[in-house]
Design a protein around this nucleic acid. Structure first.
Length: 644
RNA sequence: GGGCGCGUAGCUCAGUUGGAUAGAGCAUCAGCCUUCUAAGCUGAGGGUCGCAGGUUCGAUCCCUGCCGCGCCUACCA
């Protein structure tokens, strides 16, 4: 309810300023530094001071004296150098909150596409991939909570170098046949097996540079789709995709569609894009210099103020297309600009009944579904690829798709690295140079990193020990369910508490913590609130008991008023977190809400309260806290365990 | 060389389009379980917001320069 009130206040004030001073300024509301200053502060007088050449304080006084009454606002006062502090009508606000009303969810026009995860299907997922998937999944949940229609895509590069390398490992190094690999797949943890194999082949390349010819041959065979190497490629990629989907589902992460590189090749997506790019002169055939014979995009296209910027090769001199080229075609498909679509088959159905589809190359047996054609596209990709993302956007611009270029958002984030201490704990030897660094980059090629499933297992073990010691009366299954929820809560919160452009130096001690600013702390608050509601038995009809007069009287207690405000801020926070594209804001809010609840829990013994009206109000607040905590955690992809 | 990002308490990080006394967690120290779960709560110590200029009534935030760190800058993906 606060967002509506807020916009009502801000438009009333800006309208008054327009009439009174003939100046149009956006009036923003701030949360005052101290609660005792009131609910909102308006710094508009400071903005006006410059234009009107008048002291901010004097302007604020004029405004306060002349502003017409605003519904829901009780008093205005001038404070500090020119703030207008504003106090709300407590009883009216509380009654509005108590009465079951319905705020209309603003349905956005058109579909939003969020692409995340995108792990090369050649080895186990690691903590870097977890940050991507958790960030993407959380943003999806936030968008959906705000009423937007969202499609989640997980792009599978099943024909790339990384898959080829593992195939090289199986075929050339280990002399494995497809049936041998099939046997390995049915055994456990195929993705872990490939993790080691990938490190092994990478080292082999390093020691024997000649063997890189194996990679070229294998890549070629995979693209052609024929023969044993291609079969191995399909086996590896398909099996690893299954592993990744399982890992992500442990964290509650689902997808709608898995577009694959193999279909982009077979359905000739690139050919269509290439025609458009040539036709609209977005790229040209270079005739001289080091890029002679290549189709390139001029550097000026993606970096306006740098004429001398190197051009970017899109098609190599041997006629093959680069990754960026394919990415331009793929991005065009996401906006429905390619004039083509994949065919789809069901891939799996999640336990909650939600289906996910995978792209296929033929119409035969295809499911009657279609994807892509979004209005806005968020690509969750780490910041190291920002240069390539710029080139993709430049491609859209050069094709005159300016609106789509503007709606292509690189949802970038910094990498997850390893703290030197974490490396030591894993028994990884570091060079003296690396030891001196604040963090060490995770490297699949070196096999240096923490596997996602290992970390989740470790978290569950550690949570289970805690749960079991506190809840001996519960069954093993119940304990395990609670421990899982807590482990996932800890992991997801840990990945979300940092803002996107902060490098996370992964540290076991911090990631495995269940106290302080963590997911379990927030879950604990929700569990305690749930327990009180459970003990209280049947709840009264709040709207009946808590009349405006009763609310107003109870809310003379300043602390209770602050608690009411605390449970009223979810929508406002969601809007701001979405606008900033920063899930960390939502995570932080969850923590602050839980902190507020802790002090409510300490100060107000709900069950013991004997006054009927007060008891009803405390119960209502408890229910609000529980609901808001649950809802906010839900946006973070964190569930509330039955007990802790 | 160029581009992007970062530098805030011992450590890890927030800091809401420039605003009131710069915040939180961890760690340290001192307290709180016969009272709805102590995965909790209360309190204390701890800061030249990298450095130097500039713009402004006002700068952690904007501009310039410098220092330090990271990433990117492939006919790899």
């Amino acid at each position: 309810m606060l967002p509506q009130l807020e916009s009502r206040i801000s438009s009333a004030v800006s309208q008054h300023i327009l009439i009174r001073y003939g100046v149009e300024i956006p009036v923003t509301l701030e949360q005052p530094r101290q609660a005792s200053f009131g609910e909102f502060a308006i710094p508009a007088a400071f903005q006006l001071a410059r234009q009107l050449k008048k002291a901010p304080r004097a302007i604020a006084e004029e405004l306060v004296a002349e502003l017409p009454a605003i519904a829901g606002v009780k008093t205005l006062e001038v404070a500090g150098g020119g703030y207008i502090n504003l106090r709300l009508d407590r009883g009216a606000l509380a009654f509005a909150a108590v009465s079951p009303g319905q705020s209309a969810g603003a349905a956005g026009d058109g579909k939003v596409i969020v692409e995340h995860t995108n792990i090369n299907p050649n080895k186990a997922a690691h903590i870097g991939h977890l940050r991507n998937a958790i960030l993407g999944d959380t943003f999806v949940r936030m968008l959906r909570a705000s009423g937007q229609r969202v499609e989640v895509q997980n792009y599978i590069d099943n024909t790339g170098v990384q898959v080829a390398d593992v195939v090289v490992g199986f075929h050339y190094l280990d002399g494995k046949k497809p049936e041998d690999v099939r046997a390995l797949i049915s055994a456990e943890k195929f993705d872990f097996y490939c993790w080691d194999l990938y490190a092994k082949i990478s080292q082999h390349y390093k020691d024997n540079p000649d063997s890189l010819q194996w990679r070229r041959d294998t890549l070629h065979a995979i693209e052609a789709g024929q023969g044993e190497l291609a079969e191995l490629g399909r086996l590896v990629a398909d099996a690893i995709v299954e592993c990744h989907m399982n890992t992500m589902w442990r964290l509650g992460i689902q997808y709608d569609v898995l577009p694959r590189e193999s279909e982009i090749l077979h359905l000739k997506f690139w050919a269509s894009a290439f025609e458009q790019l040539k036709e609209r002169k977005a790229i040209y055939l270079e005739t001289e210099g080091k890029n002679a014979g290549c189709w390139v995009m001029p550097g000026s296209a993606f970096d306006e103020n740098r004429e001398d910027q190197d051009s970017k090769v899109i098609v190599r001199s041997n006629g093959t297309v680069t990754y960026v080229g394919k990415d331009i075609a793929y991005q065009m498909w996401k906006f429905g600009l390619l004039g083509k679509d994949f065919y789809y088959q069901p891939f799996r159905t999640y336990a909650d009944g939600h289906p996910v589809f995978v792209s296929t190359a033929t119409a035969e047996g295809a499911a009657p579904v279609s994807f892509g054609g979004g209005r806005k596209v968020f690509n969750v990709i780490d910041s190291r690829q920002s240069y390539l993302q710029d080139v993709v956007v430049a491609g859209l611009k050069a094709l005159n798709y300016h609106e789509q270029a503007a709606n292509s958002i690189h949802f970038s984030y910094e990498m997850v690295a390893m703290s030197p201490r974490a490396c030591v704990e894993l028994g990884i030897e570091l060079s003296a140079e690396d030891q001196a660094r604040p963090y060490v980059e995770v490297s699949g090629r070196k096999g240096l990193g923490v596997k996602a499933d290992d970390l989740i297992d470790k978290l569950i073990d550690s949570a289970l020990a805690e749960v079991a010691s506190r809840n001996e009366d519960k069954t093993a299954d119940e304990q395990f369910d609670a421990a899982s929820a807590i482990a996932i809560g800890a992991l997801r919160y840990f990945m979300l508490k940092f803002t996107r452009n902060t490098v996370i130096a992964f540290d076991f001690q911090e990631a495995l913590s269940f106290t302080g600013e963590t997911g379990p702390y927030v879950q604990y608050g929700a569990v305690r609130a749930g327990k009180i509601l459970q003990k209280a038995g049947a709840l009264p009809d709040f709207a009946q008991v808590l009349t405006p007069a009763v609310c107003a009287a109870l809310l003379e207690d300043e602390a209770l008023w602050q608690h009411l405000l605390a449970v009223s801020r979810t929508g406002q926070t969601l809007n701001s977190a979405l606008a900033a594209g920063e899930p960390a804001q939502m995570a932080r809010f969850a923590f602050q809400l839980a902190q507020q609840y802790s002090s409510f829990y300490r100060d107000y013994p709900v069950i013991q309260e004997t006054g009927a009206e007060k008891r009803a109000f405390l119960l209502w607040l408890t229910a609000q806290y529980r609901a808001q905590l649950e809802q906010t955690l839900g946006m973070l992809g964190i569930t509330v365990p039955a007990f802790m």
